[in-house]
Design a protein around this nucleic acid. Sequence first.
DNA 1: TCCTTATGTACAA
DNA 2: TGTACCTAAGGAC
Length: 271
Amino acid sequence: MPEGHTIHRLAQDYRARFGTPRGPARVTSPQGRFAPAAAQLDGHALTDAEAHGKHLFLRFRPADWVHIHLGLFGKVAFGDAPAPPPTDTVRLRLANGTSYVDLRGPTTCALITDAEKQAIHDRLGPDPLRPDAGPSAAYRRISRSRTTIAALLMDQKVVAGVGNVYRAEVLFRHGIDPYRAGRDITPAEWDAIWADLVGLMRDGVRDNRIDTVRPEHTPEAMGRPPRVDDHGGEVYVYRRANLPCHLCGAAIRTAPLAARNLFWCPDCQRT
DNA sequence: TCCTTATGTACAA
DNA sequence: TGTACCTAAGGAC
């Protein structure tokens, strides 16, 4: 589930269902690992929710933040009151008169201070979904690096929020060979990639899924049968190993890169 | 019932 | 580079 768009969407949804006007929340940790902190927060209202890249921050008291990182398996599920009995894997549950939300399987769920939160912001790169972000800080790193652009896009110090789906898809959309070195990416190419990420990820927040296929390449536009890829969105290459490229028909390739599976079209992404 | 896989990251060697 | 960690779904038996 979780690339940056998911986390920004979660911040919105936490605010909508548990923001200050909704009043205080019951805070519990049925699974137990967050129980001491949950007891401290119980009965306080959620006063803010914010995302930077894949990190989610929930504020309860003026200087108390719950730092959540979903990792690979973490999931968040919202529902309407009354909340059903929690399963024993629920790390954090918030509940009020109208809603509940369960967090399961996060890599991180911890109570932190303002200073600790700031330290996390400081080590993350610009997030295409945050209004304060722009392409230049990322390009400074990319343009000096011999590392592949595919690995750089996954590095949260370079760009925050891009994950394995967006990296594969944005490189396809720009016809860029994922193995090209960062220093061989031109300023114009990077500006175009950044702008595209901003658009794609905003769509992702709105739709709560990743769709990257341009209107002129949808199955309807190309006179082909409808499709939805396994993960629930429409994409060009992600998890389409050995299937034909939607544009040229070549077999989509896959290979491990930076500990993840990379996908690309060997014909459409030659440079 | 077991095995694999998954939109992630940190730390050890 | 390898491994550990958190959970759930799907497929092979």
